[in-house]
Amino acid sequence: MAQTEQLVQLLIYGIQLGVIYALIALGYTMVYGIINLINFAHGDFVMIGAFTAFFAVNLAGVGFFPAILAAMLFPAVLSIIIERLAYRPLRDKPRLSALITAIGVSIFLENFPRMVPFIGPNFKRFPELITMRHFYVLGQASINSIQISNIVASGVLLALLIFLVQYTKMGRAMRAVAYNKDAAALMGINVNRVISLTFFIGAALAGAGGVLYSLTYPMIDVLMGGWLGTKAFIAAVFGGIGSIPGAVLGGLLMGIIEVFATAVYSELGYGSGFIVLIFVLLFRPSGLLGKAPLDKV
């Protein structure tokens, strides 16, 4: 393959990985933006989404769209319950308490399904929901139907999210709560409901990300969310935690950098994300698009 074809091919691989990071990073960033909590359990909603789709397809025989819808709804509802039970009682306590609770929730979400006999610790093969087809874009550089569906589905979800946040009343309420929770409450905004909604949206995006990830790499197990969540969290910090465009940019860049770094020197590909994070934190501690924290007086 010629040089340009190689570059295009790697770019396609990078983008299809990056959009999944971006979808998951959005949940981290939104929850952080609203209540300053790093929700370590977020990565596990990816796994729960993937398993929801797995069972929806294998038991009910549904296709791609119902499967992804189910995979968004179930983790979303679960995340509201978790927020109500685990995080809300700690909201006015020191932030560290909620952070440690989040780690506990994550351990629970990873290990509880392991005990359930029909899930268990072993991996399962994710069903093929999209027929694999290859399309040549430039010479030998190709894109396949699963990569296209990843990119398109992520694009659609992102557009919906931006519409929701920027152009609806609920979105305005979210932005207000993110800006100042107490003032928003004084203005008559139901802060609890806004926070629940944020968790709902974040987990729904993670669930969708789980389905897209599992379509690309059709092997699911209860621990799949841990490492993927870490990557997405790095992407969120890289882009500027708290910023929605930042999470998208961070995710995309992470995916692309990782693929290119691996192509250049595969021994270090795995570490590239962490190296990038260190440099970003050194030179721009608040991330690429993050705002430097203002002291509220």
Binding site: L10, T216, Y217, G269
Partner: peptide
């Protein structure tokens, strides 16, 4: 190479 069994994307390696 790749750096651990959590890695699921080998596209860049296979490209080379």
């Amino acid at each position: 190479a790749y750096g651990g069994s959590d890695i699921r994307d080998f596209n860049a390696q296979f490209n080379n």
